[in-house]
């Protein structure tokens, strides 16, 4: 049987809670980053690039590459790999820079 990282470190996380991805409910564990919660739910891409509209998700996973940007509770460009998931967080797939409303 496959071992999971939480088994390997003998984690005893608290009770799971819900967050949403583009309106769909998924389960997250206390202490999980948003990126980790998305991965666990099988979601690998949550942003499209500014130029070509290509899909992006977590790449470095440690806050350096800025590939995993997501719109969290309406605020764009949050690094999903660093932001801890909180109950009720609304993650929305970010189109490009996520600031289209500011363009003139």
């Amino acid at each position: 049987m496959a071992r999971t990282p939480s088994e390997l470190v003998r984690a005893e996380p608290g009770p799971p809670f819900e967050i949403t991805v583009d309106g769909r409910a998924i389960t997250a564990l206390p202490g999980q980053s948003i990126a980790a919660a998305l991965w666990c739910a099988g979601v690998l891409a949550w942003r499209s690039t500014r130029g070509g509209g290509r899909p992006r998700g977590a790449f470095c996973g440690i806050g350096q590459c800025y590939d995993c940007l997501a719109t969290v509770n309406g605020e764009p460009n949050r690094r999903a790999c660093l932001v801890p998931a909180r109950p009720g967080d609304a993650i929305t797939t970010q189109e490009g820079h996520g600031r289209a409303g500011l363009g003139v």
Binding site: R50, N77, H97, R99, L102, G103, V104
Partner: peptide, 9 residues
């Protein structure tokens, strides 16, 4: 700043 659409022309 972070990348933005054209806010300053």
């Amino acid at each position: 700043t972070e990348p933005l659409p054209r806010v300053v022309r």
